[in-house]
């Protein structure tokens, strides 16, 4: 486990100004949560590996979103089998598949439509911050750096910094404009 992954409050953010809607994050997420963890092999797996992120239009823009690992997580409070819980160290909202009975109370209270029904096992499913990966699959796959892993403070700093002239220049070089 890398140090970054042990840091409190780390989660995935999306810079909506940079998202092109390519869905590379969705694909990478599904592959990361497959048995083979490789695209060519995972495609034929049964059940088909499922993504925990969604890419969707917001008026004329596009965004990628998933579990926000809320500080005060409604899904944790609503869970009657304590399958949803907070990691005391990282603050991540975790899900214990073995405890889940598929009552969908978490879905009922999640404001971000971030919890998905795994109909095969009849359990809830959501962003688990890639426990088997040194990095975050969706962030690594994002070609425009719209996706960012870090704490809310780090994301805020990044957004503020982005509007500085130096940062704008960097973005242009990177995206080949």
């Amino acid at each position: 486990m890398t140090d970054k992954k042990q840091k409190k409050g780390v989660k995935i953010f999306c810079d909506i100004t940079k998202c092109l809607g390519c869905k590379a994050c969705e694909l990478a997420c599904a592959v990361e949560h497959s048995k083979a963890k490789e695209l060519a092999l995972s495609i034929k797996e049964k059940p088909t590996p499922k993504k925990r992120r969604k890419v969707s239009g917001v008026e004329d823009k596009i965004m990628s979103f998933g579990c926000q690992h809320c500080e005060e997580a409604p899904c944790v409070a609503a869970c009657m089998s304590s399958a949803m819980y907070k990691d005391p160290v990282t603050g991540e909202t975790k899900h214990d598949k073995d405890k889940c009975v598929g009552c969908w109370m978490c879905i009922m209270v999640c404001p971000f439509s971030a919890i998905i029904q795994d109909v095969t096992d009849k359990v809830a499913m959501k962003c688990d911050l890639c426990p088997d990966n040194e990095d975050y699959a969706c962030v690594a796959a994002c070609p425009t750096n719209a996706l960012f892993s870090g704490t809310p403070e780090e994301f805020k700093r990044r957004v503020e910094e982005k509007s500085s002239p130096a940062a704008l220049k960097r973005t242009k070089i990177k995206s080949g404009v």
């Binding site: 953010f13 969604k54 969707s56 239009g57 917001v58 008026e59 965004m63 979103f65 926000q68 809320c70 500080e71 005060e72 404001p111 971000f112 439509s113 971030a114 809310p152 994301f155 805020k156």
Partner: peptide
């Protein structure tokens, strides 16, 4: 959720939780 983002922006004062603001 993405579809209602404009509505949340419009009435942002009702959504105090930091996750909405982020």
């Amino acid at each position: 959720y993405a579809k209602i983002l404009p509505l949340i922006k419009k009435e942002a004062q009702k959504f105090c939780k930091p996750e909405f603001q982020d």
